[in-house]
């Protein structure tokens, strides 16, 4: 496993006209309470250690839709090297903007963020070859927790705020969802559309 031993197995191929680069994320993502994941029903691809092929939730649990507006949804979402002395890893940030002041959103979404632990699924605009790299899972290894909260009633977030969720010490730069776009989309929809 190249993930474990630091041995590369592929170079960077020449540009592909059928697969032009694109920045950013689609407007819809999913946030899941990490404790709602049924790890008995989580499977990883046998071919690719960074591809989740099943992300089952416990019975009756659901993933929650995160809709973003504006030209650059989830702007500020990024990843950076965590340069530890003994083992290097990746810090991943997911930035969510809330635009409106809504007591239900603050009671049911923002307040639980303060002390909860989460897993998110985002869809990249650059979906890669055959669109198979479209869906990315954040917080799979160590969970996402709230690391920044920024509210300013006269700021760019209007009546809402900006909330940064962070996964630290992730051993893998990116975890993808689904072996193909079709599979990733089916998994995404089945979590998003689960019965409440």
């Amino acid at each position: 496993m190249s993930i474990c031993n630091g041995i590369i197995k592929q170079g960077i191929p020449k540009g592909d006209c059928a697969n032009l680069p694109a920045k950013g994320y689609e407007r819809l993502a999913i946030l899941i309470n990490r404790e709602d994941i049924d790890f008995n029903n989580v499977t990883i691809s046998e071919e690719r250690a960074n591809v989740i092929t099943s992300l089952g939730l416990l019975a009756g649990k659901v993933g929650y839709e995160i809709h973003q507006m504006g030209g650059t949804p989830f702007t500020g979402t990024n990843a950076a090297l965590e340069d530890n002395a003994y083992y290097r890893s990746v810090t991943k940030n997911l930035v969510i903007a809330v635009i409106n002041n809504d007591r239900d959103v603050y009671g049911q979404f923002v307040d639980p963020l303060l002390n909860g632990e989460f897993v998110a699924i985002v869809e990249r605009k650059d979906k890669g070859k055959d669109h198979a790299s479209a869906f990315e899972v954040l917080g799979y290894h160590n969970g996402l927790t709230l690391t920044a909260l920024d509210e300013n009633a006269y700021g760019d977030y209007y009546g809402g705020g900006l909330y940064t969720l962070t996964e630290t010490a992730a051993p893998v730069s990116r975890m993808y969802l689904g072996e193909t776009y079709e599979a990733g989309k089916a998994l995404f929809d089945s979590i998003l559309e689960a019965e409440a």
Binding site: S54, G56, L57, A194
Partner: peptide
């Protein structure tokens, strides 16, 4: 009913709870 986040493959067709 399948669990959310789970698909099964039958041939080349993916089935979810929906």
């Amino acid at each position: 009913i399948l669990r959310p986040g789970v698909i099964i493959w039958i041939g080349t067709e993916a089935y979810s709870r929906h």
